[in-house]
């Protein structure tokens, strides 16, 4: 038996919004640690990893590890039936083929129960190595979203150059070129507005904007985004979900042939 309850459906709705354009099907792994999901996009260029920790739930019961194979589009559609303020319970039997989603209004006057058919999915899990990164940039998530969107008007790729004190995002295309320079904040009252740039060694890498734009669908989950970059390895774009977990995206770089 698996059963968990979150005080607000909003966070799970936003999580589904952050995933459904990138992946069509996925497996939620349920264990005593919480819910987690890992999946590559269909082109195998990027990977998304989600962790929702037990401690962040109102209640969490998992008698036995289970894997819930879901169609992301279906799950997102059902989640949309919840109001943001509803509390939400997810429930599944150990060998069941259904996931129950129960939404209760804050005043307790309305309870909606949906049952979603589960899928038997065999999705390859990749080992994500723990590593130190050459550079880590933290910035307002809305600013990063804006940069990715704006540079998409110019080209298909963004070149990210990180040096001490700042970062350049640049794009080239048939119509012209663009460069956006973001400087590290010198003095910030509100942590959410801060830009911090940690540099062990300067890096310069190129990434497909198409995927970065998919990743920025997670913007409503967190005021800040962190970008971890090292030469010739996937970029990590991470959104922390307050008190609950994170959504992390990994994007393979474009490199010279």
């Amino acid at each position: 038996m698996f059963e968990c309850r979150l005080p607000k459906a909003e966070v799970l709705k936003k999580t589904m919004d952050a995933l459904k354009d990138l992946i069509k099907e996925a497996v939620w792994d349920v264990s005593a640690q919480g819910l987690s999901l890992q999946s590559m996009d269909s082109s195998h260029v990027s990977l998304v990893q989600v962790t929702l920790r037990t401690e962040g739930f109102d209640t969490f019961r998992c008698d036995k590890n289970i894997a819930l194979g879901v169609n992301m589009d279906t799950m997102q559609k059902l989640m949309k039936c919840a109001s943001n303020d509803d509390n939400i319970t997810l429930k599944s039997e150990d060998n069941g083929d259904l996931l129950s989603l129960i939404f209760e209004s804050p005043n307790g006057e309305k309870t909606s129960e949906y049952e979603m058919k589960l899928m038997d999915l065999d999705i390859e899990q990749l080992g994500i190595p723990d590593q130190e990164y050459s550079c880590t940039i933290k910035m307002p998530s809305g600013e990063f979203q804006r940069i990715c969107r704006d540079l998409s008007n110019i080209g298909e790729s963004v070149n990210i150059t990180v040096v001490k004190g700042g970062v350049d995002f640049s794009a080239k295309g048939d119509i012209g070129n663009a460069k956006i320079h973001v400087t590290e904040s010198s003095n910030v009252d509100n942590e959410k507005d801060a830009v911090t740039v940690e540099v062990n060694e300067p890096v310069n890498l190129t990434f497909a904007l198409r995927y970065l734009n998919f990743f920025t669908k997670a913007t409503p989950l967190s005021g800040q985004v962190s970008l971890s970059i090292s030469p010739d390895v996937p970029l990590v774009v991470a959104y922390e979900i307050e008190d609950l977990g994170h959504v992390k995206y990994f994007l393979a770089p474009k490199i010279e042939n």
């Binding site: 590559m40 195998h44 260029v45 990027s46 990977l47 390859e124 899990q125 990749l126 080992g127 994500i128 190595p129 790729s157 190129t206 497909a208 390895v233 996937p234 990994f250 994007l251 393979a252 770089p253 474009k254 490199i255 010279e256 042939n257």
Partner: peptide, 14 residues
């Protein structure tokens, strides 16, 4: 020109 690499060339199956 630069070519897109695959995520599975960096991360191996568990």
């Amino acid at each position: 020109s630069k070519q897109q690499t695959s995520i599975s060339s960096f991360f191996k199956p568990k």
